[in-house]
């Protein structure tokens, strides 16, 4: 395999405050050039924290981080000052869940895109504006020329999310981070934005990390899926592997409780219990208290990700994986 665009090794993030929370506990993954990784998890699983850590967005005073993040040849953990600013938005950019909050309400959408372009490249205002227009057309905003001069509040939710994507693409990033970009949208708009993301990714050849709690949305856009639980990746593999042959009991439970075709007269197969408290994670597998397969080993030792038989890239962190491990 060629050298990955993004490589994350043993990433740990702890937040300090009145309570200390271990938000990420030894997260490692790679992302190839032009690949879309769906990061799937519930609230508190660490999926959004992972994205923010990639951009070093956490307040340093209340966060301690360790591990390694490399994007291309850049050591992200070592970035500071001007280099960090160039990295954010230039090499890696982000699309947020709520575009209403990501835009400054006092400036037009066009002004904000132009400003972003000129912050990263030495070009004149007219060229930047032409590029902004091209971006607005690229994200399929109708009447793009007119909408360039619109204020964020004058746009509908779906339109704002498209404009947000245009803003994120302004400096031709190699890696796009999308944090629940379609969660706040109506179903008919969500599918449009998902299709747009897929199309843009293909055309521009960029890598994407798509964070979501919605398996359906992740399946629509991703090449690979990583499932997170309690600040750790518990399973990763191709979309088909994870969705059709889940190896981790949590993934299996999540898929089963995502109502798709459960007969109406049957109770839903629910996972008992509630997601773990990051301030007091159990010593072993974080899912053990809710898991039907849990043994004494699960409660004492954290399982490492290991490959499943038949597919080296399908890995799960479980002592009692539902599939046969490759090296059992």
């Amino acid at each position: 395999m060629s050298k990955p665009l993004l490589s994350v090794r043993d990433l740990n993030v702890r937040f300090h405050g009145e309570r200390n929370a271990s938000a990420l506990n030894g997260v490692s993954f790679d992302l190839a050039e032009g690949e879309v990784l769906g990061l799937l998890g519930e609230s508190g699983s660490g999926k959004s924290v992972t994205l923010r850590t990639l951009l070093k967005l956490h307040p340093p005073a209340r966060t301690s981080m360790s591990g390694q993040i490399r994007v291309g040849d850049t050591d992200v953990m070592a970035l500071q000052g001007r280099a960090l600013e160039q990295y954010r938005g230039g090499m890696v950019s982000m699309v947020f869940q709520d575009p209403g909050l990501a835009f400054d309400p006092l400036y037009t959408v066009g002004e904000q895109i132009v400003e972003t372009i000129r912050a990263h490249e030495r070009i004149d205002a007219d060229t930047a504006r032409a590029r902004a227009l091209e971006l607005m057309e690229r994200v399929q905003i109708p009447q793009a020329r007119r909408r360039l001069d619109a204020y964020p509040f004058e746009m509908s939710g779906g339109m704002r999310q498209r404009a947000m994507i245009a803003l994120a693409l302004a400096c031709r990033p190699r890696l796009l981070l999308a944090d629940e970009p379609t969660t706040a949208l109506d179903a008919t708009v969500q599918i449009q934005v998902l299709l747009l993301l897929r199309e843009l990714q293909r055309e521009l050849g960029m890598s994407v990390i798509f964070v979501t709690h919605d398996i359906g949305a992740a399946v629509e856009v991703s090449d690979r899926l990583a499932v997170m639980y309690g600040g750790r990746i518990v399973e990763e593999g191709s979309v088909a592997d994870v969705v059709q042959r889940p190896a981790h009991p949590y993934t299996a439970g999540l898929l089963a409780s995502t109502v798709v075709d459960v007969p109406r007269d049957q109770a839903l197969p629910a996972i008992p219990g509630a997601p773990p408290d990051l301030a007091a994670l159990p010593p072993g597998c974080a899912f053990a208290p809710r898991c039907a397969h849990a043994s004494a080993q699960c409660r004492e030792q954290v399982p490492a990700l290991q490959a499943m038989a038949g597919d080296e890239r399908h890995r799960a962190a479980c002592w009692h994986a539902l599939l046969q491990p490759a090296h059992a």
Binding site: R19, A267, P269, A270, I271, P272, G273, A274, P275, P276, D277, A279, A280, P289, R290
Partner: peptide, 14 residues
Amino acid sequence: MSLALDAGSAPATL
């Protein structure tokens, strides 16, 4: 399958 309860398991710090 019987009713699954999340009583007691969270929030664990309390």
